[in-house]
Design a binder for these strands. Structure first.
Lengths: 185, 185
DNA sequence: ACCTGAACACCGTTCAAGT
DNA sequence: ACCTGAACACCGTTCAAGT
């Protein structure tokens, strides 16, 4: 979809970028989003300086990790605009959104916090997706009564902040169901 | 209500305990729950060692800070058991709960995470309150239809995790309204 | 019994030296 | 242009020395 902000050029730099990204996914999936950056560098087989050169902050790393997922969600929201049952499409999209970072402990909560900050790396990454979702949300308003006191972005923040009970991969998530039911005016 | 776990005996120790607690409230209110422990010690006018002697972990400090509020909530839940309109009482109690730590940025999210861990300081502190709330919750079930797939503690975790939009002290919180509406089966 | 602050450990971040 | 790891900084945590 959209190209990552500024990919490095040299071959070894690209290799390191990829290695760090892959290592970060593995480390954060296993040890959560608070895992030491040092562990990521080691797992990638690069020096700490290289890690920081490619990803100036932890959050830049998160944004890179989420890139593909967010692009998919963006595309999915656009497709949903033409769905016959918009409420159903909205619900299903939110189920996808709810799961999109569950393999990284602590990630969803972080996303929820930075989502409405457009200056943050994750906030910037999510800009297009937020716009697509907002359109879907507004269209859903025309079909079903949605409560008027919640913006689309607030809804996303709320879903991101939902507890993620370990183990119980129950589908659909009871927490999300509360939100979906409560969303209707 | 219940007495704090193990208060120190000597006068100076007691003074330090109180000073640290007061300082922690001020510092965490101003700089959030991630503020350096060092800042708390300095604000209290004690050495770092004294802080750690009284509060072995950051979370013990949180538990001490929340003590009074949680006791009040506990008492309030017990009173609510006799309310004429239990659903209304439940709603109002959850509004209190929702606000109970808002002056400390990041605190609610932390409470939500440790709430179901009975071995944690905050989880232990909240034990009695959780029990009182569970009774209120079960009584509400008899009056109104509540969704069956959510335990009382899950509900509390969910409310604690709700985004706290800075500035807008809107009452009642739109996020909580979503939860309350979505709670009815 | 309790207090203090120096000492240690850990980790995020920077940067001089090297390729 | 990029990589590396030593160096620095910050802060949580411990503990020897002192009252």
């Amino acid at each position: 979809m959209s190209s990552p902000s500024a990919k490095p050029r040299r071959a070894d730099a690209q290799r390191n970028y990829d290695a760090v990204l892959a290592a970060a996914k593995a480390v954060f999936a296993q040890a959560g989003t608070d895992a030491p950056m040092e562990d990521v560098a080691r797992a990638a087989g690069v020096g700490k300086g290289t890690l920081y050169r490619r990803f100036p902050t932890r959050e830049h790393l998160f944004a890179a990790i989420l890139q593909d997922r967010v692009d998919e969600l963006d595309a999915s929201a656009q497709r949903a605009l033409d769905a016959p049952d918009v409420w159903r499409a909205l619900s299903e999209w939110l189920e996808l959104y709810d799961r999109c970072a569950t393999e990284y402990p602590g990630m969803s909560a972080r996303v929820g916090e930075s989502l409405s900050d457009d200056t943050s790396a994750v906030g910037t990454l999510c800009g297009p997706m937020k716009n697509s979702f907002a359109r879907l949300f507004e269209r859903a308003r025309q079909e079903v009564q949605l409560r008027p006191d919640l913006t689309p972005t607030q809804l996303l923040s709320m879903v991101s902040a939902l507890p993620k009970d370990a183990g119980t991969g129950r589908t659909p998530d009871p927490y999300l169901r509360v939100v979906l039911d409560g969303l209707r005016a």
